[in-house]
Amino acid sequence: MISMMQTDFLKIKRKGFWFLTFLGPIGVVALQMVNYGVRKEYLLQQSENDWLYYLQNITAFTPLALVLGIAIFTSFMASIENETNAWKQLIALPVSKMTVYLSKFTMLACLLFISSILLMLFTLGFGVFLSFDEAIPWLELVKYSFYPYFAALPVLALQLWIATVSKNQGIPITTGIFGVIFAYSAHIIPDWMIWKWPSLMNQWDEPLINVLLGLGVGCLLYVVGMLDFTRRDVL
């Protein structure tokens, strides 16, 4: 499993995965840099607690970046194997198909986790730069940086599944577009839709529910995807 993952990390060299891992969080924070750069005075008037309001502004984009990032990563990774149909070589190695699938999932989960760490650091950095009056809300900062990640795991499992079994990568990308539209419409879609979860909204107003749902349903979708992957013939 470790060696399989080393191989997967080797394969994504020079393909821009690391670039995107950095760009995602940078982009999310950069949008707020522009936002605050243009109308800082106005934004400071919007709330009693400027730090929290700033975090909420950041969090408006985190789910969108996550859902789209997942769609891009999974599809990108599948196209690397599809390009010369390297699946047939990979599956003819003395490793189980489950290991192959798990390794891909774990690698992408790692990249996204790194993105989340970076998001926290960049958010903190720009927040400190803005020098709000309040103390830094550490707990909220950690929550807003990592909760969406865990809540997005079902989306990762679903997109990985679709991307690995689709010959035509237009299908997972279109699914990703649907996903981002749902994520953007999180306030009007029902609680059961997995794309709503990264926004941390729910009728009980308890973000931790989304994290737990993310972990549980993420595992479930992962297992379903993996079983389907192992069941299929490699052409």
Binding site: G16, L20, L23, G27, L31, V34, N35, V38, A60, F61, L64, A65, L68, A71, I72, F73, S75, F76, S79, I80, E83, Q169, G170, P172, I173, G176, Y184
Partner: peptide, 27 residues
Amino acid sequence: FKSFAAPFAVNVIFTLPTILAVNSERF
């Protein structure tokens, strides 16, 4: 680009800021 993902990534990078841009009369 041969893959779907790379042009899509470019597209996403330019499209996401729109959400903010449409709120700004200047940009």
